[in-house]
Write a protein that binds this DNA or RNA. Sequence first.
DNA 1: TTGAAAGCGCTAACAC
DNA 2: GTGTTAGCGCTTTCAA
Lengths: 330, 330
Amino acid sequence: MKRVTIYDVAKEAGVSLATVSRVINGLEIVREETRVKVEDAIDKLGYKPNAVAQGLALQKTTTIALLVPEASFGYTGQIINGLIDVAKIYKYNIMLHTMTEGIVDIKDVIDDVIKSRVDGVIIYNDKLMDQELIELNKYQFPIVVIGNRMSNQQISSVFVDIEKAVYELTLQKLQQDKKYRVAVIQDRKNDFTTAQMRSGIQQAYKEMGIEDEGYIEIPQEYRRSYDYFLDNIENLDYNFLIANRDSQAISAMNAAHERGLSIPDDLELVCLIDSKYNSMVRPRLSSFAIPSYDLGAVAMRVLTKMLNEDEVEDKEIELSYLYTPRQSTK
Amino acid sequence: MKRVTIYDVAKEAGVSLATVSRVINGLEIVREETRVKVEDAIDKLGYKPNAVAQGLALQKTTTIALLVPEASFGYTGQIINGLIDVAKIYKYNIMLHTMTEGIVDIKDVIDDVIKSRVDGVIIYNDKLMDQELIELNKYQFPIVVIGNRMSNQQISSVFVDIEKAVYELTLQKLQQDKKYRVAVIQDRKNDFTTAQMRSGIQQAYKEMGIEDEGYIEIPQEYRRSYDYFLDNIENLDYNFLIANRDSQAISAMNAAHERGLSIPDDLELVCLIDSKYNSMVRPRLSSFAIPSYDLGAVAMRVLTKMLNEDEVEDKEIELSYLYTPRQSTK
DNA sequence: TTGAAAGCGCTAACAC
DNA sequence: GTGTTAGCGCTTTCAA
């Protein structure tokens, strides 16, 4: 089928292209009779409006860019599901971009986003520095950031207060029993989140007057945290570990098991983000059940708001978590 | 920053827009001196070419559409990773579409794809019927299908011979020991794959002269296969199960464990697709290690070939699997 | 209610 | 080498 344009339809229907355009866009000012004529022509020719040309004419692509860390679908999958469901409602298309660590790659990605003239962008990336946001901002893109609290004229955010989550849990444990030594496990893929978790735990320790780092760093020489835990889990100073992603907690759990430690008797574990992993593994992890799907859905909703009207009332939307004890804690 | 166009750059540099266009596109026929002038102007103004306008003028969007089943990132994640890595090399952007079961939704998705005038499309969807492919074909989209063997003028495919995989394994087991009763577990989300697995197992049974369905259907009333197995795993006629996705095998494994069965002594399990799940779970599943990442990477590579020109020599690319025994089998 | 024509930003002959 | 100009397919005043 050769490309059929609005001109072809116009000719076929014996009207002008302006009229065809009106029919396509459902403008009311078209007489029933001619509307039918046009619609018949459209069907007959199999005409589909060219979104690229529409984009040019309207200065609006009805497309948003989604930026996530590369190889992160394990924990961003649910967010994306939420995003897409809402995007479908508002008829937005999604350009998927993944960003690698290296600053160079990120610059390229930002460049692609700018060139593609999307209407807005949603970012889930712990590593994204102000630098890039500023660049995006220069070009007037409405942005929604998932995971970090931040906002300005052009930026909104949707997030969970991880610091508080960790703080509360740690405090509760420390108060409950002196024997508890709580630590946060570094998430090398999510520096900012790690920092927030650390901040939360430090607050709790400080409040209890205890001197403790409460932090387990995974040395760079270990490719996987699992390997690190295999080597070190028996000699940890801690008996209660908090991980960001369930997969990390599971790594520790498996290593512990490998070394003859029993969960939760010898070691207790908690994670913040539940993915499908956690429904498969035994024992199941206690978690904060961070609402990933909702993070995505709300982010998209906020973006459409920014896109449609201008002022969004609340630019920093905090979603709540629900601590859910399971078998990995006593 | 207000929108800066190629005209602005031309004026700033004191040249015509054609020259700017040449500089942007790295055409050689520009004098060094003017090239520098133009580049300075571009930098000064922060000009970024408008990909939408380029798309219109060139009839080429440098974008491909990726279609996957909704909520499938658990097992399509790796495919997407491979896809993206190769797409980056060739500078293609990716429009992400997910398709729900309902035929209506799929029609809408196809419609969006057509309207967006992408250069090509990659489909991973077991459920995609010829109907939709024909529609896409009418509009001349080069298509690469992942998972099914098929091809024509405009369609290529990248896949693994699942039928053979299941056939070989089943046969081997049946020959090895009379006590084996092998069965395939239905994957409700992947009918076509399920059919292939069934075909493989039936061939093996037939060859051994054994009358057996070798098939476990998960009734619709069970929301999750896990629930089904909880109810039925003790009374199965089979002692060796083959699942498509690792997550399904894990469901069965967890249910078995729940019911006091031991893996692999009472029940052996194998899956075709490994995801990260399988690296987390204990015991680890024996699998065919279907090369998901490569499926994506090769698919994208084939698509770029179709896009760039010539006849693609091999339109049906079969990737190989490697059966990898682990703890879930004896 | 409908049509004519300008414009969205860029590319690619074709001239000079 | 560089500029002019005609599209690419659609939307949207402005007239009629």
